Simulated scan of single mutants.
Amino acid sequence: MQKRTGMVSRAAVGTAAAFALLAAGCGTTTSGDAEGGTASIEDGFKVGLLLPESKTARYEKFDKPYFEKALAELCEKCELSYQNADQETAKQQAQAEAMLTAGIDVLVLDAVDAESAAKIVKDAKGQGVPVVAYDRLAQGGVDYYVSFDNRKVGEVQGKALVEALEKEGTAGEGEIVMINGSPTDPNAADFKAGAHAILDNEAEIGAEYDTPDWSPDRAQTEMEQAITSIGADDIVGVYAANDGMAQGVVAALKSAGVDELPPVTGQDAEIHGIQRIIAGEQYMTVYKAIRPEAETAATMAVALATGEEYDGGEIGLTEVESGDGEKVQAVLLDPVPVTEENVEETVVSDGFYTIEEICTDAYAATDFCAAANDSK
């Protein structure tokens, strides 16, 4: 359940204003119940950041550096303690315990398992340490949450797949395969629900899998099973919940001797996903502007540590409900679909990737790279 309590605008709007407010020590108002500390920007304080895994390239390459930079701009003397759990729930619990023992003042948590993370949240709050849920909504009563409208992500993917089938004239002619994300990730459930809301009315789903750990290798195995059960010629499209799993899907199709690949979806705008898109091996991905997400998380963390309330800036706050029924004030950012037609207007223009990073030797002959080089 989601209830809008603030004004919605573009993802990146309002972050600089929030920085200015916090740097000046000025509070804002909100209807939320977030707890606040008594640390100060002038003296600095300790911030813990726990990210869930490294199989998805975004966390180490983008989320952590963006968060670190935003925190440094907000609080020059603040100290960041960072750990990645490598998709292990017990490891993340141990990392959180170590950070709490070391005396962090606020915790930013991207949970491996939202339900299991309730213990981390309750332990932190029991020690007076507020918690920001980052990207995944942990249970246990977090203070704030920042992510994307995850059901909308699935809807964007589903709509793109339907559009691709219509373009190719294969809508209604065969079956699609759904390769969903990890069953322990609440975001994956939202992506899946959003995709089903579109695809159930537009396509025949021949096989569907929930993929532990978002594993590309497992996705490849699942796709191989689908090819065996349905037949490669009868698969007209594949819903892959992210780019890593899309890689496994494409590998399975190629291994099965499929020359004309069906449209395949993705998410996260990973560099290899973008390259598959310009090469015609993947139809689309979902670009989630990680910089404003990380900046918002840093702003929330500083506000909580210093006892300032946060109103979500120009994007505004949304009330969401976690898996254990807790109502949480959140900022939800908008996802953007990326196909070959708008690669340059999205990930390139935002500085996510350069043309040189995309157009390596293996992709230099693609129409996209040829056109990009001709325009220089």
Rank of each mutant, 00 (worst) to 15 (best):
Q2V: 15
V13G: 04
G14N: 01
G14S: 04
A23N: 11
T30R: 00
T30I: 01
S31K: 12
A34V: 04
F45R: 00
P52G: 01
S54F: 08
R58Q: 04
Y59S: 05
P65N: 04
E68T: 14
E68W: 08
A72V: 07
L74R: 01
E79D: 10
S81Y: 13
Y82M: 02
Q83V: 09
D86L: 12
E88V: 12
A90I: 09
Q95V: 09
M99C: 06
A102N: 10
E115T: 07
E115W: 10
K122V: 08
V132E: 00
Y134G: 04
R136M: 05
A138C: 01
D149W: 07
N150L: 07
Q157K: 14
L165C: 05
E168P: 03
E168M: 09
G169V: 07
I176C: 10
M178P: 10
I179V: 15
P183Y: 09
T184S: 06
G194H: 03
A195Q: 04
H196M: 07
D200C: 11
A203T: 10
G206C: 06
Q220W: 14
Q225A: 15
Q225M: 14
I227F: 11
T228Y: 07
A232K: 11
D233S: 11
G237E: 06
V238C: 13
D243S: 12
V250G: 14
A251L: 13
A251P: 08
V258C: 05
D259R: 14
L261G: 07
P263R: 07
V264N: 08
G266W: 06
Q267D: 11
Q267R: 12
D268E: 04
R276N: 14
A279D: 07
Q282Y: 13
Q282H: 15
V286Q: 10
R291D: 11
P292W: 07
A298W: 09
V302Q: 01
T306V: 00
T306M: 00
T306H: 01
Y310M: 02
V320S: 08
G323A: 08
K327A: 03
V338K: 13
T339A: 14
E341A: 15
V347M: 11
V348T: 11
E357H: 07
C359E: 05
T360H: 09
A364T: 10
A364C: 05
A365C: 05
D374G: 14
